[in-house]
């Protein structure tokens, strides 16, 4: 049974009848131009937007699951986060335990280690760089250990080293028999790490499948409006605008 499946998921003027499935152990990449509906899709799956169509989580209708329980199963890291207060990194990561109503130290420590924020766990968030913060937000959602992890552009502000590190974290997380959906702009990294890709264009899904099936010149130039060079045979694969 699919971990998550959506059936004709629609959000007025932003998302048109998207049907997809996420299996356990799978890292699914959401790609598409700005405004294609990637964030909207993630928010709708997390239940943050009212949408029509159906979402089922392991066969259960998502609407029928109480908010707390749903939050334990589905964790989302939105793209734009900031902390209103000068909290410590550890306290922010501990907030990720809220759906469980505990402060499970092992889960918090595991998340801090995974996201690579050990070195500044006791510092205040407003004293960190943008890239360091991005990893703190990731640690926060990892601390909840959700079965389904939704991440909106986690690597946008990261340097090359941490782009790879974070994608590794997401890949490893999915391999623990959980599921991860990541919205991502870097198509080379998407090809390298994701098991399947879902290409969105103007709110509709125009392709879903393996990177080789989705990352084709015809589909990408239709979605992005520019010609692209694609070399998936290379290691690592390369997808760049021409």
């Amino acid at each position: 049974m699919a971990l998550i499946s959506t059936d004709h998921l629609t959000v007025a003027q932003r998302l048109k009848a998207v049907s997809l499935e996420l299996q356990r152990g799978e890292l699914l990449g959401l790609i598409g131009a700005n405004g294609a509906g990637k964030s909207t899709l993630l928010h709708a799956i997390a239940g943050l937007l009212s949408a029509t169509g159906n979402i089922t989580i392991e066969g259960r209708a998502a609407d029928s699951i109480p908010p707390h329980e749903r939050a334990r199963i589905v964790g989302i890291q939105p793209q734009a986060i900031n902390s209103a207060w000068s909290l410590t990194v550890r306290d922010i990561v501990a907030l990720g335990r809220m759906p469980w109503g505990d402060e499970d130290e092992t889960a918090i420590e595991r998340a801090i280690e995974r996201a690579g924020v050990v070195a500044f766990r006791d510092r205040n968030i407003d004293h960190l760089s943008g890239g360091e913060r991005a990893r703190v937000w990731l640690a926060r959602v990892l601390a909840g250990e959700p079965e389904v992890l939704l991440v909106d552009e986690p690597i946008a502000s990261l340097d090359l080293h941490y782009q790879l590190a974070v994608m590794e974290v997401l890949k490893n997380y999915s391999r623990e028999q959980r599921g991860v959906i990541v919205a991502i702009h870097d198509l080379s990294l998407a090809a390298r790490f994701c098991d399947r890709l879902c290409l969105l264009d103007k709110g509709g899904m125009i392709a879903i499948g393996t990177p080789a099936e989705v990352l084709t010149e015809a589909l990408l130039s239709a979605a992005y409006g520019v010609p692209v060079d694609i070399d998936l045979e290379r290691n690592p694969p390369v997808v760049l605008p021409r």
């Binding site: 908010p67 986060i81 902390s83 909290l87 922010i92 907030l95 759906p99």
Partner: peptide, 20 residues
């Protein structure tokens, strides 16, 4: 109290953590 804690990271995050 829990809602106030969650709201540190904004309404969306608070909502996604099961807070009303």
């Amino acid at each position: 109290r829990r809602l106030l804690a969650a709201l540190s990271l904004g309404e969306q995050v608070a909502e996604s953590m099961g807070q009303s």
